[in-house]
Amino acid sequence: MYAFEIERPTSVAEAVTALGTEEAQPLGGGQTLIPTLKQRLAMPSKLVALTAIADMKYVRRDGDTLAIGGGTTHGTVAKEAATHFPGLAGLAARIGDPAVRNRGTIGGSIANNDPSACYPSAALACGATIVTNTREIAADDYFQGMFMTALEEGEIVTEVRFPIPEKSAYMKFEQIASRFPLVGVFVAKYADRVGVGVTGASNDGVFRWSEAEEALAGDFSADAVAGLTAPDASDMISDLHGTGAYRAHLIGVMTKRGVAAAS
């Protein structure tokens, strides 16, 4: 790691001020950023740790919406979202491993938008709202390709608001080494629509599989997916763990299984 300073503000306002320094970078749970720093792939002058901001750690239900503070760990979401939104709790419970879930946060995951992060698929499928210290952003506008988001410099994800679906499930087909999703599919069924968010697969990062959404809106069954043409393999990531064709195929399988498992 390069040398840098670290600050631990206890409020969002303090964090925003601290992030005003040149080359300052926010630090969520650090489970992705710290390994990146070890490889000297980032050279911040200062890290602003968000873990001491108590106001950013909560899972709150407000009617049909589940609001999760940006600093909430995956472990907490796995436990506290379970009764309100089991699909999301199930997603959180399978990120990384127990130690990683005790540190990694939803805000960090959403802000980083790793092409194989789990949360973005749920945020897209559910049409979540990404709340920052300055504004609210619709998920469809927020995710802009691999590691690209609508966030401005110094902007912090303070909350993610999920409309709670009637039924949902997250199906993760793991890359065998990292255990990140090779393909992850979040299926969310609402009264008037179905969302299908796909992570891990596409060269463009997380995306909604709209053909499946349309087919499932009329007939929320595994059979409805079976007849669909898989997404174009040439748009999919091809690497040592899987070809584009394989990933495209898995999207169909995982979607089908997600529909069958949705609760």
Partner: peptide
């Protein structure tokens, strides 16, 4: 952050000590 040889407990919770700064 994968092998877990550095696991410790911080405030009673399992944490990888290689993936947390001392200042935190």
């Amino acid at each position: 952050s994968q092998c877990g040889a550095c696991c410790v407990h911080v405030n009673g919770e399992l944490v990888k000590a290689c993936s947390m700064f001392a200042a935190e």
